[in-house]
Simulated scan of single mutants.
Amino acid sequence: MQILEEMQSRGHEALTLLHHAPSGLRAALAVHSTVLGPAIAGVRLREQDEDLAIRGALALSESLTLKAALAGLNYGGGACVLMTPECGMDDPHAREALFRALGRQIRPMEARVVLTEDIGVSAGDIAFVAQETRSTLGMHTDTSAVTGYGVYRGMKAAARFALGSESMRGVRVAILGVGAVGRALATHLHREGARLTIADDRPERAEALAEDLDGVTVVSCEQILDAPCDILAPCGYGHSIRSTDVPRLQCRLIAGGEHHPLTRRGEDAVKEAGIVYMPDFAINAAGLIAAATTLDMNQAAERVYQTVGRITAAAEQYGKAPHVVARRMAERRIQLIGSLGGAGTWRSA
């Protein structure tokens, strides 16, 4: 991987590798943009090698820039991907040490980076970080629950454009990944009467959810891409849909909580296939909005609903794909607000 070329092509400002041997801290911290303000960096913890951690941080940080901009927040985008220590994370003292070590390493970067939770990281973990640095957000927000509800509301707005109605009753929705966000999304959809097919790379998790929600069909992660459905909702770790998988898809809309379910090539492929794609940075922003503002779950989800509505209205007006419109809207705000100079001195949204 040519790291500098990758950073240049995406417009990144910085990439830092963090290391603290006693705690087992090994992390990649990417700052994509600070044009609108300090970079909100989602912190992820996963078992993966260094190359995957760097790739993940670069991709996620770009998505956070677009998400914050589109949501009207005065923040830029970053990402911090932690590699699971070899000793594991079962010892609570070891977990505390890991996240406090992260906080100490972030302390010199407080003017540029703000950490918040993401996959594998809890509000309690961010509270450990906060013992060492002021640059944290979201400790008192159930980010996954808020994000899941926001995806549900955004999906309804997208369905009005793609399916002709925002009602989910009888709509076939295939959810790939039923962790905290996917489970919350499934619960809201089930309550409205959607017909659900679910899959997870931990099959027992999907089976447990199916036991709680009547009438849910469980398939494998490979099978779900072939499932007849109206909406495919990727809610996994990223790049769940390869460009070569697109001809298999039987959906009319892709809308889920996952960051970067498609590559740029995949986005082109779904556009050619006539599938509407509502991008991650537009539809999964409610958790970030709630963490960065004083808005509650309903208010944050309503902001997502309104944003998706603006995207689809513009897409219909100009005959453009919604994911193209959404990116242009985010980039336009960065350009306009960035031109004022001195961004980042006032964080309220």
Rank of each mutant, 00 (worst) to 15 (best):
A28F: 04
T34Y: 06
T34C: 01
V43C: 06
L52H: 12
A53D: 00
L58I: 12
A59K: 11
N74Y: 03
G77W: 03
R95Y: 09
E96A: 12
A97R: 08
A101I: 04
R104A: 13
Q105R: 12
M109I: 11
A111Y: 09
G120Q: 11
S122T: 06
G138D: 04
D142I: 10
T143L: 13
T143Q: 15
V146M: 12
V146R: 14
T147N: 11
G148E: 00
V151P: 06
S165L: 04
V171S: 03
V173H: 09
I175C: 07
I175P: 01
L176P: 04
L185N: 09
R191I: 12
L196A: 05
A199I: 06
D200E: 04
R202W: 13
L209A: 01
E211C: 13
E222H: 03
A227D: 00
C229F: 11
G236K: 08
I241F: 02
Q250D: 07
G257D: 02
R264W: 14
G266P: 08
Y277I: 10
Y277H: 14
Y277N: 14
I289Q: 06
I289K: 01
T293H: 09
N298H: 15
A301Q: 00
I311F: 01
A313P: 02
H323S: 11
V324C: 08
V325H: 07
R332S: 08
L336Q: 13
